[in-house]
Nucleic acid binder design. Structure first.
Length: 150
DNA sequence: GCCAACGTTGGC
DNA sequence: GCCAACGTTGGC
């Protein structure tokens, strides 16, 4: 079982939205590296940090779980969708996603700023300069360490 | 709203 | 295959 971090802008889709809906198709990812993680590596049951990005208090807001195998992102075929991709086709879909299921909301947001202050997390992908991946792996040791911070 | 960092596109 | 131009991400 692997561990992941998935970013979402809370104004668009927050941990509270996931709590309400229980399961959400993680659509709209249009980055090949992030897609490859979802398509090739993620497995149902993998653990996920739900991260709030591009907001007043960026950080880990909750826990979730991968809830499906990967399948084509329907929004890529929808001409009315913001995520429509005219270069993709149903025969050869370019973008894949997984379903993500709510596990729990953290008692507080473990902020990006706080994570930066822990030497144990120096190697964390999230904290690498210039990293913009919206779906990324988290090392098991980092996962366990972060859970103790709540 | 700014802007650094990065990814993608497309002309050559 | 190079690289300039452009678009996006996301912290601040």
């Amino acid at each position: 079982m692997k561990h992941w971090l998935m970013k979402s802008e809370p104004e668009t889709f927050s941990i509270d939205d996931l709590k309400r809906k229980r399961v959400e198709a993680w659509d709209g990812v249009r980055n090949y590296q992030a897609r490859n993680f979802m398509r090739d590596v993620m497995k149902p049951g993998d653990k996920v940090f739900f991260y709030h990005s591009n907001c007043a208090e960026p950080g880990i807001a909750g826990l979730a779980e991968v809830a499906s195998d990967s399948y084509p992102d329907p929004s890529q075929f929808d001409a009315k969708s913001h995520y429509f991709d005219p270069k993709s086709s149903r025969e050869d879909p370019r973008w894949m996603l997984v379903d993500v299921e709510f596990v729990k909301k953290l008692k507080r947001v473990i902020t990006l700023d706080e994570l930066k202050g822990h030497a144990a997390l120096d190697e964390m992908l999230l904290l690498r300069k210039g990293n913009r991946l919206s779906v990324m792996p988290v090392a098991a040791a980092e996962w366990r360490y972060i859970l103790t911070l709540e």
